[in-house]
């Protein structure tokens, strides 16, 4: 995935059984953002793979004051890349679960 300066990782082990996953996001390189991010913390949140989109979460993070609205795309892309990787991995382990 492209280096966006925003890192997103699983906050818990993914066994591929739940549609909701816990993710943790933090800024690795503030210079890649247009606005100044709030604080210097890791933001943990849950994400429903079936019902939600990365844009939903990015928008809520901006509305909650974590990021400037000009960074909506970079936050959304960072989440989308990680979610795509999780879904790709789930596709691969699905036969083993069945």
């Amino acid at each position: 995935a492209e280096d966006t300066g925003v890192r997103v990782e699983l906050a818990e082990e993914d066994h591929g059984r739940k549609s909701t996953i816990a993710l943790r996001l933090w800024v690795e390189d503030p210079k890649k953002l247009k606005g100044k991010p709030k604080d210097n913390g890791a933001i943990e949140f849950t994400f429903d793979l079936e019902k939600e989109t990365p844009d939903d979460v990015a928008q809520e993070m901006i509305e909650s004051g974590f990021f400037h609205e000009s960074d909506m795309k970079i936050v959304s892309k960072s989440i989308r890349d990680r979610v795509a990787l999780i879904q790709w991995r789930r596709e691969r382990i699905r036969p083993a679960l069945q």
């Binding site: 849950t46 993070m61 974590f66």
Partner: peptide, 27 residues
């Protein structure tokens, strides 16, 4: 300890914790 919780009006909960120094990229 130093956890902060922010709840968005849509109901999503964000829990903020310090990032360990080892996870931050050196500039």
């Amino acid at each position: 300890s130093s956890l902060t919780q922010v709840v968005h009006s849509a109901g999503r909960r964000f829990i903020v914790s310090p990032v360990p120094e080892s996870r931050l990229r050196e500039s």
